[in-house]
């Protein structure tokens, strides 16, 4: 099966997974809402109305207003743009580094591989978003710093998956045959090995987007994510938790948005992984 057709077959099989289909539908809606946020958001997400601060949901403000009187629904929609942007960009950066590092380590082996494994071991010793917290803490809150902080550790997971795939694939007969007929190492890697390693990377990347969204929201919750007043779901919860007694909607609305988004990515990831498992078993 060609690599493009393989990925298509994987996506087709995953779409039959009920959870993945639901996840994909929710993510499609969310992406459209995020893209159209400037047009469909009822208000300017930064416009303050101090005398209406902490107002509960009403016909004028469906999800209520925060302490500065900003419209929660508008902030939520614009926050979706930010969350999805961080999720996709972090994964794109991490994936680029991870694929390059993992494939070189797996393909070249020897000292390069040993150094790679050592670097991964060191970075994996920093659990969760601890290193990202440390980096963001010293570099300060900004969109660029969040991407930097999340990507610096994010690439390791992809690199390990790619390395494992490359180690497995480079020993296969078809790669040996290509080598025997004189294919250059770069061609072996780029044309024969990497394209066949795409499926597991796709699964990992799907989970990775959800993880990056949670990580960004976590950093923003701590006040070291995206710089205010940009609407981030994490900072909305961080600010809202101080008003739980009088305005619980400030926590429940962004909380539900994060839960729904991350769960959708996890369902899609699960569906892709199950589809991949079936294919692996069938081989």
């Amino acid at each position: 099966m060609s690599d493009g057709a393989g990925v298509l077959a994987l996506l087709r099989r995953a779409s039959r997974h009920r959870g993945a289909a639901w996840g994909l539908a929710i993510l499609s809606l969310l992406s459209v809402a995020a893209l159209l946020a400037p047009a469909i958001a009822p208000r300017d997400p930064l416009a303050q109305s101090l005398d209406e601060g902490l107002s509960p949901p009403s016909p004028g403000h469906w999800l209520g207003q925060d302490k500065l009187g900003r419209d929660v629904l508008s902030r939520l929609l614009h926050g979706a743009r930010l969350s999805l942007a961080v999720g996709f960009l972090t994964v794109a950066i991490s994936l680029s580094i991870g694929v390059a590092a993992g494939s070189l380590a797996g393909f070249l082996g020897g000292a390069v591989d040993r150094i790679f494994v050592g670097v991964c071991d060191v970075l994996m010793a920093f659990p969760g978003i601890l290193l990202a917290i440390g980096i963001s803490a010293v570099r300060g809150p900004s969109f660029g710093n969040v991407l930097f902080a999340l990507s610096i550790l994010g690439w390791v997971g992809y690199a390990r998956v790619v390395r494992a795939q490359v180690l497995k694939l480079k020993a296969m007969d078809y790669v040996e045959s290509a080598r025997a007929v004189g294919s250059r190492p770069s061609r072996l890697l780029l044309a024969h090995v990497l394209p066949n390693a795409i499926s597991p990377i796709l699964v990992e990347a799907t989970f990775g987007i959800g993880r990056a969204i949670v990580a960004e929201a976590g950093l923003s919750f701590l006040g070291i994510g995206v710089a205010p007043p940009a609407p981030s779901w994490g900072s909305m919860i961080g600010e809202g938790r101080h008003f739980l007694f009088v305005a619980p909607h400030l926590v429940t609305a962004p909380g539900a948005a994060i839960l729904l988004t991350v769960m959708s990515f996890n369902f899609v990831g699960d569906g892709l992984r199950d589809a991949l498992d079936v294919r692996e078993e069938a081989r």
């Binding site: 949670v214 929201a217 976590g218 994490g234 919860i237 809202g240 909380g255 994060i258 839960l259 991350v262």
Partner: peptide, 8 residues
């Protein structure tokens, strides 16, 4: 559900 959602 991240812990900064679940906690509050």
């Amino acid at each position: 559900v991240p812990n900064f959602c679940l906690g509050p």
